Lab assay of single mutants.
Amino acid sequence: MTYKLILNGKTLKGETTTEAVDAATAEKVFKQYANDNGSDGEWTYDDATKTFTVTE
């Protein structure tokens, strides 16, 4: 399945997607991506749209 990440950071904004077997796997990928790019904030997940959002 395709999962989407929306970044609403102070310095990093945008979207990216990943293919993953489940939401937990996608979350690990996205959290590593956000960490690698210095983005940290409040995470939410919408199962209906398969979208993670991180807001700083």
Rank of each mutant, 00 (worst) to 15 (best):
G38S: 06
F52G: 00
D36T: 08
T44A: 11
K4I: 12
A20Y: 02
T18E: 03
A24I: 10
A48G: 07
K31I: 07
Y45S: 00
T53W: 09
F52T: 01
E15P: 04
T17Q: 09
Y33D: 01
I6W: 03
K50A: 05
E27N: 04
E42S: 10
T53N: 04
G41T: 05
T17R: 07
E27D: 03
T16R: 11
L7K: 00
T16I: 15
D47F: 07
L5Q: 01
N37W: 14
W43P: 00
D46Y: 04
A24H: 09
M1N: 14
G38W: 10
E56N: 08
K50Y: 08
F52D: 00
A34R: 03
A48I: 10
T55D: 06
V54M: 09
S39L: 15
K10V: 14
E19P: 04
N37D: 04
E27S: 05
N8F: 11
F30Q: 00
Y33P: 00
E42D: 12
E15W: 13
N8H: 09
Y33L: 06
T53S: 05
D40F: 14
T2N: 05
T44R: 08
A48V: 11
E42L: 13
T25L: 05
I6H: 05
T53Y: 11
T16E: 05
A26D: 01
V21D: 09
K31A: 05
G38T: 05
E15D: 05
A26L: 01
G41W: 15
G38Y: 09
N35W: 14
W43R: 00
E42R: 08
E56S: 10
N35I: 15
V21A: 13
L12N: 11
S39K: 09
A20D: 02
D40C: 13
Q32C: 06
D46N: 08
F52M: 00
G9T: 15
E56I: 12
T49L: 06
N8W: 13
T53E: 05
K31Q: 08
N37K: 12
Q32R: 08
T18P: 00
S39M: 15
K4R: 12
T49I: 05
A23Q: 11
T51K: 02
V54K: 02
K10D: 08
A20R: 02
T25V: 06
N8L: 13
T51P: 00
T11F: 14
G9V: 10
D36C: 09
A48Q: 10
F52A: 00
K13S: 10
G38A: 07
Q32E: 10
Y33E: 02
T44V: 10
K13C: 14
E56D: 11
V29E: 06
S39C: 15
K4Q: 05
A34F: 08
I6E: 04
A24R: 07
A24W: 09
T55G: 05
F52V: 01
D40W: 15
D46C: 08
V29W: 14
A20P: 02
K50F: 07
T44D: 08
K31Y: 05
Y45F: 05
A20I: 02
D22F: 02
V29P: 01
D22W: 01
Y45L: 01
T17E: 08
Y45C: 02
K31E: 03
K10Q: 11
Y3L: 02
G9E: 05
T16P: 02
T11L: 12
A20C: 08
E15L: 06
W43F: 04
L12D: 08
D46T: 03
Y33Q: 03
A34W: 12
A20E: 03
G9R: 05
D36M: 12
K4D: 03
V54T: 02
V54P: 01
K31F: 05
T17I: 08
K31S: 03
M1V: 13
V54G: 01
K28Y: 08
N37Q: 14
L7V: 07
T11P: 06
T53D: 01
T49F: 04
I6D: 03
Q32D: 07
K31H: 07
D36A: 12
A48Y: 09
A26C: 02
A24C: 11
W43E: 00
T18C: 15
K13M: 09
V29I: 14
T44N: 08
E42T: 12
K10W: 10
T53C: 06
V21R: 12
K4C: 07
T44L: 07
K28C: 09
T11Q: 10
L7H: 04
G9C: 13
G14H: 14
I6G: 01
T53Q: 06
K4Y: 14
F52H: 00
N8C: 14
T51V: 05
A48M: 11
T16C: 14
N37Y: 13
A24K: 11
A20W: 02
F30G: 00
V54A: 02
T17L: 07
A23T: 08
K13A: 08
V54I: 11
T2K: 09
